[in-house]
Design a binder for these strands. Structure first.
Lengths: 205, 205
DNA sequence: AAGCGACTGGGACGATTGACCCAGTCCGAA
DNA sequence: TTCGGACTGGGTCAATCGTCCCAGTCGCTT
């Protein structure tokens, strides 16, 4: 064991790979580009990972776990449910605008996984993670606003993610902020319309 | 100009390239794979196209023009607007299920374009084409059902495309048909809720 | 029938890639 | 201080890529 960090070096390489993919896409994430970004030598790469594929596999798993979608889940107190949903979407959108290449990178990683036989199951986990984040927003928002959902929470979470994916892709294509806002308004309106007030007694406990 | 088809050979190569991308992704669409699929020799490729990039550029333009999204626009007569929207979504979904790799290919081509400086504007045209198809469905459906939209048609088209993109990505990830149906139901409900009946006089003329 | 030019086959080139290898270096344990 | 093993630098390899080239071939025109 000894020297610093068998795991630290792997983590450093993963971070570097993510930066390279942000900058140049999955296509540009060659072993040489990654070690250059990490300030290491090529030998270190194959000392840490058996192959590039293994690294990509771990990278996707890492991204899925550390769902940075958390920005979606900033629920302020005593807001009505429509505001909660709209704010969550706005937070996500601002993340997208401030770092569009990151969302592109996530999509590219997904499509790369779908094309790679032994990675084909990863997108399922990726979306399960997204749904979980959406569910957190919807549940905590509903609790804060004193409402409950008239549809199963899993279905609502999927609908919310469909909205974020759809508005992200269209925005990446034409960068129309105003149009994205319209979609977010529509999403907040229609989703919050499925909220029903909790009877005071239930709300209280 | 003589021999058969300066344009025909280009078209044949484009079709072959599309089949290769369907099968192996953009990454696998090498010049050699494409000419093999087309049953041609490598020299013919560079006789027809100056470079692979030029071919990809024309391929995307071709795909955007021949929007196969038309399947979305099968409007049956005397159906209420909710049914029209739901049927359009269902037609799209069945296209997706019967040919998932085609939708994957379109996404990959979009992301490839976004990463390629001189192709960066193509996704805008791609989505303009999608919006146009959605608009056709919404307008003809509204005319057939005798309703009009309470939101600008451009905004509604974008919302509809957000739904199709969102449900497509999630379905590609987990292949959950039932969940996709829920999203489509929600989309049809919420979009058709924005339809208002036309006064008989207007409807008649 | 001849010839011109559009077209093709097959090979080659340089660049890039993932992977490997080996001689060293550096650190901590003894 | 010595020594062993974890780690690295730099070079190399085969495979694959886009691109190019040139000697042919084939079909139309004349």
């Amino acid at each position: 064991m000894a020297r610093l960090s068998s795991d630290e070096r792997r983590a450093a390489l993963l971070q570097a790979a993510l930066r390279v993919i942000d900058r140049d896409g999955v296509h540009g994430a060659t072993t040489r580009a990654i070690v250059a970004e990490a300030g290491m030598s090529l030998a270190s790469f194959h000392y840490a990972f058996r192959s590039r594929d293994e690294m990509i596999r771990e990278l996707i798993a890492f991204v899925v776990e550390n769902e940075q979608q958390v920005s979606l889940a900033a629920v302020q107190a005593d807001a009505d449910i429509r505001t909660v949903v709209r704010s969550g979407l706005q937070a996500f959108f601002e993340l997208l605008v401030s770092n569009p290449t990151r969302e592109q990178a996530l999509f590219e990683l997904m499509h790369y996984s779908l094309r790679t036989p032994e990675l084909g199951e990863l997108p399922r986990a990726q979306y399960a993670s997204y749904f979980r984040a959406a569910r957190v927003l919807l549940e905590s928002g509903a609790a804060a606003a004193g409402v409950t959902w008239s549809l199963p929470i899993e279905e609502l979470a999927r609908i919310l993610i469909a909205f974020t994916d759809g508005l992200t892709l269209a925005w990446l294509a034409d960068r129309d902020d105003a149009a994205a806002a319209v979609v977010m308004d529509f999403a907040a309106d229609t989703i919050s319309a499925l909220a029903v007030p909790v009877r005071a007694k239930e709300h209280q406990r």
